[in-house]
Structure formats: C-alpha cells, structure tokens
Simulated assay, not measured.
Amino acid sequence: MKYYIKQQVFSWRDRFTVKDEKGKDVYFVEGELFSWGKKIDVADASGNVVLHIKQNLWNWLPNYTLFMHGHEVATVKKELSFLKPRYSIFGPDWEVEGNIWEHDYQIWENDALVATITKEWFTWGDSYELDIEDDSNMLLALGIIITIDCVIATQQAASSS
C-alpha cells in the first residue's frame, strides 16, 4: 500500500501528516520543541501515540531508538562511511539500500522488499511516497524513514551554518 508524507514548511518543530492513497490522514507526526536530543511521536487518527522515536545522546554518530506501545522495537544507527550514508538497523533484520541523500531507497529483509521510499520533487516542502509491501510493517518502516530523514536534515542544517 502507498502512503504519502508531506512535511510542513516553516514549522518550529517537526510536524507532518501521513496520508493513505485516498488522501485520508492516517498518522500525525510531531517532534518535541524543547528537549535534550530529538524526540518524535507518531499518533494514529484517534490521537493515540503508537510510535515514539528518541535520539540516544552521547554517541559519536547519530543513534535513535524506536518504541511501539512502550516497547523498544528497533535501534537505527548511522555508520561511519565516506562515500555514501549507511545505516544499521537493530531489532528487525532489515537493511537500507539505495540513494539515501536523494531520498530514493529501499528497506529489505533478506531478499524480500519491505518498503520503497521516493522523494517527490517540485513540491512545496518535502514530500515522500512510501510504498509498503506488507501493511503490518508500516509503523516500523515509517519510524525508520523518519529517523533517517531526521539525521539527514540535522547534517544539512549543520553544514549550512
């Protein structure tokens, strides 16, 4: 199933909506404005927080933990690499491949495709298409995608200052 992420431009904190193919709001994503490290909550259409992403401080490279319903389900770590960004995912046996800087990549589990992420160009704000092969992986895949986007945005902001 396909989902669409459209981030709001000029927001003081991370805030965006995830829509399904019919344009219906499925998830609401919001980051905490004042916190030590990045913290992001994903709520369902009823307002219940179903996914929490927390930056693990005091690491040399970016490192985030994902929680679903209060239980740790994955850790995403940026790896040291010189040519292209690499991420390790601990929890599920998933791998990220593709052009991460261009937001055109896939998440794989062994030889099975879990999700494809593509950036929609020429839109106001960042917009992404997320194609999930199995809907049961939606929340975790969404969390990993948000985490990778967070790392990229932080690095771009640091390099532009």
Results as ranks from 00 to 15, higher is better:
residue 4 Y to V: 04
residue 5 I to V: 11
residue 9 V to L: 13
residue 9 V to H: 11
residue 10 F to K: 05
residue 13 R to Q: 12
residue 17 T to F: 07
residue 22 K to F: 10
residue 24 K to T: 14
residue 25 D to N: 12
residue 26 V to W: 01
residue 28 F to P: 06
residue 29 V to G: 04
residue 31 G to K: 03
residue 32 E to T: 12
residue 36 W to R: 11
residue 37 G to F: 03
residue 39 K to Q: 11
residue 41 D to W: 03
residue 44 D to H: 07
residue 48 N to L: 14
residue 48 N to G: 11
residue 49 V to R: 09
residue 51 L to S: 10
residue 54 K to S: 01
residue 55 Q to V: 00
residue 59 N to Y: 01
residue 62 P to D: 04
residue 65 T to N: 08
residue 69 H to G: 07
residue 69 H to K: 11
residue 70 G to F: 03
residue 72 E to D: 10
residue 76 V to A: 01
residue 77 K to F: 00
residue 78 K to E: 04
residue 79 E to K: 14
residue 80 L to T: 15
residue 80 L to V: 14
residue 84 K to R: 15
residue 91 G to D: 07
residue 92 P to V: 04
residue 93 D to G: 13
residue 94 W to V: 01
residue 94 W to M: 02
residue 98 G to E: 01
residue 99 N to D: 14
residue 100 I to H: 04
residue 102 E to A: 07
residue 102 E to C: 01
residue 103 H to K: 14
residue 105 Y to C: 03
residue 107 I to G: 01
residue 109 E to Y: 09
residue 109 E to W: 06
residue 110 N to R: 15
residue 111 D to L: 10
residue 111 D to K: 15
residue 111 D to F: 09
residue 113 L to C: 08
residue 115 A to P: 03
residue 117 I to G: 05
residue 117 I to V: 14
residue 118 T to F: 03
residue 120 E to D: 15
residue 120 E to R: 15
residue 122 F to V: 11
residue 129 E to Y: 10
residue 132 I to Y: 01
residue 132 I to K: 02
residue 136 S to E: 13
residue 144 I to V: 14
residue 145 I to V: 15
residue 146 I to M: 07
residue 147 T to A: 06
residue 148 I to E: 00
residue 150 C to H: 09
residue 151 V to C: 07
residue 153 A to R: 12
residue 154 T to S: 14
residue 158 A to W: 10
residue 160 S to W: 06
residue 160 S to P: 05
